[in-house]
């Protein structure tokens, strides 16, 4: 399987405190890779290093390489990197003053990526991919905040897809949602893997087992084990992995 993202010797510090230690990881193309691990082990920090969100935080320092198709994203234009590598956050954050339509269109608009006439097509296509089109096609001009939380999360996925990224990073995309919405988004993620490389951070080991092809287990800022999901859960190589998946550490 082809590698889409390769992380090499990645270290991250906040002020003087190191939270990611020498992480190496090869994320396969067109597959779902789950990142699991106890709270505070650095999952979000790792994910945010992959689309250069740490650039915004003055006290964050990143060392190491993140290669997208063999090229280090830290040597490219961060704006282009973020368009290619989209991010979906834990809590859905629709832009509150904008309509559903504008929420999906805004990234494309502000990046001057498409003419006005094409916007409608892009919005429809993105909403369809996010499995939201049927529910909102008649209320595109309503405020995005009028949607339910589960719909809002699919809206933020559509917003990210509108930029036609190559990689989707998702940080606990279902942890703020009810079980029905969670199921919808899980199905959606599985459908998206034909076109995208997906990395999902999750607290929920059963979710990782349900949807992912590969799983990385993180502990105290290090990747302890990385393997095919079924293999990792059935046959953990490290003792600490086994302890975690059997619920003996949390």
């Amino acid at each position: 399987m082809k590698t889409k993202i390769e992380i090499r010797n990645l270290n991250v510090w906040f002020n003087k405190r190191q939270v990611i230690y020498d992480v190496n990881l090869k994320v396969p193309e067109q597959a779902i890779t789950a990142v699991i691990g106890p709270s505070g082990c650095g999952k979000s920090t790792l994910l945010r290093a992959i689309n250069r969100l740490h650039d915004l935080i003055p006290e964050a320092k990143v060392k190491g390489e993140v290669l997208l198709d063999g090229k280090d994203i830290y040597k490219e234009d961060p704006l282009v990197v973020r368009r290619k590598i989209g991010m979906v956050f834990q809590k859905p954050v629709p832009f509150p003053s904008m309509s559903i339509f504008e929420n999906v269109a805004i990234g494309v608009k502000l990046n001057d990526l498409a003419k006005k006439e094409r916007l409608e097509k892009i919005v429809e296509r993105s909403l369809r991919m996010a499995a939201l089109w049927e529910e909102v096609k008649d209320i595109l001009e309503s405020p995005a905040t009028s949607l339910s939380v589960g719909q809002q999360q699919r809206l933020t996925i559509a917003r990210t897809l509108a930029l036609e990224p190559e990689v989707l990073l998702m940080d606990e995309p279902t942890s703020a949602l009810d079980p029905v919405s969670m199921k919808k988004i899980e199905e959606l993620i599985v459908n998206l893997k034909n076109d995208y490389t997906i990395v999902v951070v999750t607290h929920d080991m059963r979710q990782a087992a349900r949807i992912s092809d590969f799983t990385a287990f993180m502990y105290e800022g290090k990747i302890i084990e990385f393997n095919e999901t079924s293999e990792l859960f059935r046959n953990p190589k490290e003792e600490i992995t086994e302890k975690y998946i059997t619920g003996r550490i949390s």
Partner: peptide, 13 residues
């Protein structure tokens, strides 16, 4: 701040 962050994550200057 999550709103500003979401915008930045879309590659908006």
């Amino acid at each position: 701040p999550t709103i500003s962050e979401a915008g930045i994550a879309l590659g908006i200057p």
